[in-house]
Amino acid sequence: MANIHPLSEVQSKNIGSDTIIWQYCVILKNAVIGNNCNINCQVFIENDVTIGDNVTIKSGVQIWDGLTLEDDVFIGPNVTFTNDLIPRSKKYPEIFAKTVVKKGASIGANATIIAGNTIGENALIGAGSVVTKNIPAGTVWFGNPAEQKGIIDTNGTITYL
C-alpha cells in the first residue's frame, strides 16, 4: 500500500506498494506510478504519465503528459520537463511530445529536458544542464546546451573525456 500524505491530492488509484507521496503533491487520475517510489513534496504529475519502480522525484518537479520514467530513475529538485515544442496560450497539440527517461538514469537539480528526447539507460545529466537531443546510454552530459563530458558505468564510476 502507498503512503500518501494527507496534504496531497492524489486522484490516481494506480500507485504501487511502498510508494511514498509527500505533502503538497497533486497526482491526476490516469497517472501510473510503480512500487517503492519516493515522490517528494510539491510535485505535480499529469495524466498521460508512467513512472516505473524505485523512482525518486525530488521537490518542485512537474511530470507532464507524455513523460515516461522507467525503473530506478532519479529526478533531482526543480528539474523541468517540457512537453509542447510550440507552446501557445489556449492552443494545445493533438499529441504531446513523448519523452522517455530510461532505466537507471539520473538528472541533476534544475536541469531542463526539452520534449521529445530520450535519456538513455544509466545516463547522468548534470545539474543545471539543458538537454536538447537524445542522450546515449551510459554517458555523462552537462552544460547549456548539454554536451557529452564522459561515460559512466553501472557502479557510478565516471571516466571524463
Rank of each mutant, 00 (worst) to 15 (best):
A2F: 02
N3V: 05
I4V: 07
P6R: 10
P6A: 08
L7Q: 10
S8H: 02
S8P: 01
S8R: 02
S12R: 02
S17V: 03
S17R: 13
I20W: 00
I20Q: 01
I21W: 00
Y24A: 03
C25N: 07
L28A: 09
N30F: 08
N30S: 09
A31Q: 09
A31P: 12
I33Q: 01
N35W: 04
C37K: 00
C37R: 00
N38I: 06
N38E: 06
N40F: 07
Q42R: 06
V43S: 00
F44R: 07
F44M: 08
E46Y: 03
E46I: 02
E46T: 03
N47Q: 05
D48A: 11
T50W: 04
I51G: 04
D53S: 09
N54M: 09
K58E: 13
S59L: 02
S59G: 04
V61A: 09
W64L: 11
W64C: 10
D65Y: 07
D65W: 14
L67Y: 11
L67T: 13
T68I: 12
E70P: 00
D71N: 15
F74E: 01
F74H: 12
F74T: 05
I75W: 00
I75C: 01
G76I: 02
G76T: 07
V79P: 05
T80M: 12
F81D: 02
N83M: 11
N83E: 06
D84K: 14
L85H: 12
I86M: 09
P87V: 08
R88D: 12
S89Y: 09
K90T: 11
K90W: 10
K91G: 05
Y92P: 14
E94R: 11
F96A: 15
A97D: 13
A97N: 14
A97G: 10
K98N: 07
K98D: 08
K98M: 05
T99H: 12
T99Q: 08
V101I: 15
V101W: 00
K103E: 14
K103H: 15
G104M: 04
G104A: 08
G104H: 02
A105F: 06
A105Y: 01
A105S: 13
I107A: 09
I107G: 01
G108I: 14
G108M: 15
A109V: 09
A109H: 12
N110M: 13
A111P: 10
A111C: 14
T112W: 10
T112H: 03
I113G: 01
I114P: 04
A115Y: 11
T118F: 10
T118E: 15
I119R: 03
G120F: 09
E121Y: 07
N122I: 09
N122K: 13
A123N: 06
L124H: 02
I125D: 00
I125P: 03
A127W: 13
A127R: 11
V130R: 03
V130N: 04
V131S: 05
T132W: 08
T132I: 13
N134L: 06
I135A: 01
A137R: 13
A137P: 03
A137Q: 11
T139R: 04
V140Y: 00
V140G: 03
V140H: 07
V140A: 05
W141D: 01
G143I: 11
Q148N: 12
Q148C: 12
G150H: 03
I152R: 12
D153A: 09
T154W: 10
T154L: 14
G156R: 15
I158Y: 14
I158N: 05
I158A: 05
T159G: 05
L161H: 14
